[in-house]
Design a protein around this nucleic acid. Structure first.
Length: 101
DNA sequence: GACTTGACCACGG
DNA sequence: ACCGTGGCCAAGT
């Protein structure tokens, strides 16, 4: 924690992302609701600065419309998710049953 | 401290 | 179902 007993927004976000179970996904807005002092947009801003490959399952965070965010480069997010058994429909949307909670 | 920038979202037309 | 619009809030300039 950083100031007066309250955990900083990004710490909370990191903590929630780390808790997303294997084989499930959640949305930016959902994370915003589980944390304080955040919005879906600010959650995305935090995620953007994360160094890749530090162990955090960043790929389990998707848009509320169940499509994958455009990260602006080669990311194998879809492959990573499919590797966990997550299925996409013909439109490129993750099937609702994989959402967490 | 004002102004800009996003891995976003809900809603109306 | 597809846009456009306004709202959101931490960070960076």
């Amino acid at each position: 924690m950083s100031d007066n007993g309250r955990v900083s927004p990004r710490e909370q976000v990191l903590s929630v992302v780390a808790r997303i179970p294997y084989g499930r996904v959640t949305g930016y807005g959902t994370i915003a609701r589980m944390t304080e002092g955040t919005s879906a947009r600010s959650v995305g801003s935090f995620m953007r600065q994360l160094p890749r490959g530090h162990g955090l399952p960043w790929h389990r965070v998707v848009r509320s419309d169940r499509t994958l965010a455009d990260h602006g480069g080669n990311t194998h997010q879809r492959e990573l998710l499919e590797g966990e058994g997550i299925r996409f429909d013909a439109r490129g949307r993750i099937e609702p049953r994989f959402f967490w909670p």
